[in-house]
């Protein structure tokens, strides 16, 4: 579904990603793990078009992502739940969801999608009139995911959904990720919480200072000594 070959990217003169090649097949859940500053967020931003890649090829179901303008990437079926949620704090929950359905194909089914995400997250329905910024961290994460699902995406990019949440809530967030997997979405997830994410994902890539240094099935990576030592504290 998603295919990256030799992708470089950076901020001005600073190069943050070096020759990234990876793929995500339909129906899979793929994890990207790595230390702080490894370039995980940068990778997500490159895929969703927020940051242009400087070289390499990048396709989504055959469409060239590098020539697609950023606001058209959603229309190809990629929804990005950004790091630290980035809800519109002074808009109501429902207005946030409405923006999630901004693209023409989603607008037509707004009511239907709204019912669908309220079904997934009944909590949001209770809070729909409330300013998104006044909800708890866990609720905000739900809202951010729900907003992404409003566009009826094929691929959901999740950037550290458990960030800044209490352990109990983190557990709920991973349950949530499982839920959306079973709903049939393809998932690409970035996480610091390596042991948890490897339980959810089918495959994983390990990113170190902008390069992919290891990849394989979750079970393989979870068994690797280096990863256990460096990222799982075992």
């Amino acid at each position: 579904m998603l295919d990256l070959k030799g992708v470089d990217a950076g901020y001005g003169a600073f190069q943050a990603l070096f020759g990234i090649s990876m793929r995500v097949n339909a129906g899979e859940a793929v994890a990207v793990i790595g230390a702080n500053g490894a370039g995980k967020t940068t990778l997500m931003r490159v895929i969703s078009g927020m940051l242009p890649a400087s070289s390499g090829t990048m396709t989504m179901e055959g469409s060239d992502l590098r020539t697609t303008p950023p606001h058209k990437v959603v229309e190809l079926g990629i929804a990005h739940v950004p790091e630290s949620r980035r809800l519109f704090p002074r808009l109501s929950v429902e207005d946030n969801l409405r923006l999630g359905a901004y693209i023409p194909s989603a607008r037509a089914h707004f009511a239907e999608r709204l019912d669908y995400v309220y079904g997934l997250f009944p909590r949001l329905k209770e809070r729909r009139g409330q300013f998104a910024g006044t909800m708890s961290g866990g609720e905000q994460q739900m809202c951010a995911i729900a907003r992404a699902l409003m566009s009826k995406p094929k691929l959901v990019l999740l950037d550290e959904p458990s960030m800044g949440l209490a352990p109990v809530i983190v557990q709920q967030v991973f349950d949530l990720v499982r839920r959306i997997r079973t709903e049939g979405y393809t998932v690409l997830i970035v996480e610091q919480n390596v042991s948890q994410v490897l339980k959810v994902a089918d495959r994983a890539y390990l990113l170190e200072v902008g390069r992919i240094v290891q990849s394989g099935s979750s079970a393989e990576l979870a068994a690797s000594d280096e990863i256990r030592k460096a990222y799982m504290g075992i």
Partner: peptide
Amino acid sequence: TAIRAISQDRQIMPLMGVD
């Protein structure tokens, strides 16, 4: 809605498909 949202977070508007 996009007009009301844009000043709150300009950078992520493209993620919503907003030009």
